[in-house]
Amino acid sequence: MAGLPADVLLVSLGSTAGLRAVDDALLGALERAGARVAMVRATAPPPVRTMALTDLAWARAARVAAQEGLARHRPRAVLYGSVGAALLWPRPGAIRLDAAMAANRPGRHGVWQRPRERWLLRRCPLLVPQSAEALAEVPQPRPAAVVVPPPVALPDRVRPWAERDVAAVAYAADPTKKGLDRVLAAWSRARRDGEELVVCAAPAGAVPRVPGVRDAGRLDRAAFLELLGRARVLVGAPRREDHGLVQLEALAAGARVVTTSAPGAFVALSLLRALEPRAVVADAEDPAALAAALRAALDAPAGALQERARGLLADRFAPAAVDRVVAGQLLPALLG
């Protein structure tokens, strides 16, 4: 195989741990489908002050990575791992997305990205949204699409409810977007002596030093999944949720999920409403309502919730199900 062109060049932005994990999973699925895949990843640029400039810096880094990958691997097709990776593409290609910038870059935050996205959509041969909900946010006109969700691994065994030694976990890579302030306000009302909320992925200094709250910092993926396997509840109050992979992983690990509703694709919401409607709080600005839902989840008996959640996840998000979509729909669409 040495010297053969790649079937697919996957251009990964890699600006967050979540994006890197999703791109790595897609790479594996494409390779299991029999494709020769080369992946290139943008080198992180220096931080800048605004979202518009941040997207520009990352887009430039992705363009450099894509140019190098095109020269080295001579691919038949190019797949950009996100809209951000495609913004300054050197060659048109398919675009993977968890959310359209028309939806998640409002106002001045997307002053140049939104018109650029519309330009891309007129030239993009294929969209690869992570969910039907994400596709619904993409402006018309848009190209053909193949929905490929990120896989959610289902552990062979989940820890029984009585053995879970972590009361609650919150994920706060972007504290404002993930609603860390709302979570902390609810936790201060809901917690009992001896209970601890573990906050993961928050930037340095974002988590206050208060009783019952521990800043776990940025955990590697294995450590984070292990923590979810020990937790009773994952709690969130997002201002927007582009997909909600962490919530799905928490359900797979046997934890309950308590959240406020939020705009965005947020595919976990429909599952949560089917599993435990009271775990979804309608008023995101009501800390008492979120605290009550959190307290109820912490105190509730395990029942059959864990197995019901895993059954719902298996139908749509299990790795084998995603592999079938990649092999049967995505790869033929990419390679024609």
Rank of each mutant, 00 (worst) to 15 (best):
T50M: 15
P92I: 10
A65D: 00
D55W: 11
A62L: 08
L53Q: 14
A59Y: 00
V83S: 13
T54W: 07
I95M: 06
V64R: 12
T50K: 07
A94K: 03
T54R: 15
R49G: 12
L88Q: 14
A57W: 00
V78N: 04
W58T: 00
L79R: 01
L87S: 00
L56H: 10
A94M: 10
A57Y: 01
L53H: 14
T50L: 07
R74D: 11
Q67L: 10
G84Q: 06
R96E: 07
V48C: 10
M39V: 13
R96N: 13
V64T: 04
Y80Q: 00
M51W: 13
T43R: 15
R60L: 13
D55R: 10
A42W: 03
R72N: 12
A66F: 01
I95S: 05
A86E: 04
E68L: 10
W58V: 00
R91F: 13
A57M: 04
A94N: 08
V78I: 11
A59F: 01
H73C: 07
A65G: 01
M51S: 14
R96Y: 11
I95Y: 06
T54S: 15
P90L: 04
A61K: 04
A42F: 06
Y80G: 00
A86F: 05
V40T: 11
R63K: 15
A66I: 02
A77M: 06
R91D: 10
R49F: 05
G69R: 02
P92Y: 09
P75Y: 08
G81R: 01
R74Y: 12
R49P: 06
A66P: 04
V78Y: 05
V64G: 04
L87G: 00
A77W: 03
P47T: 05
T43N: 15
D55M: 12
R96S: 14
A66L: 08
A77V: 06
A57C: 05
A85M: 07
R74I: 05
T54H: 10
R60Y: 12
A66Q: 02
R49K: 13
A65S: 04
R91T: 13
P75K: 05
P47S: 09
A61T: 04
S82C: 05
A44S: 09
A66D: 02
T43W: 14
G69A: 14
P75T: 10
M51Y: 12
P45E: 08
H73Y: 14
P90Y: 03
R74P: 06
G93I: 03
A52S: 13
G81S: 08
G81K: 02
W89E: 08
R74C: 12
A65P: 00
V83A: 12
A94H: 05
A62M: 04
A57G: 03
T43D: 14
A42K: 03
R41M: 09
L56E: 14
R63E: 11
A42Q: 07
R60E: 14
A65L: 02
W58D: 00
W89Q: 15
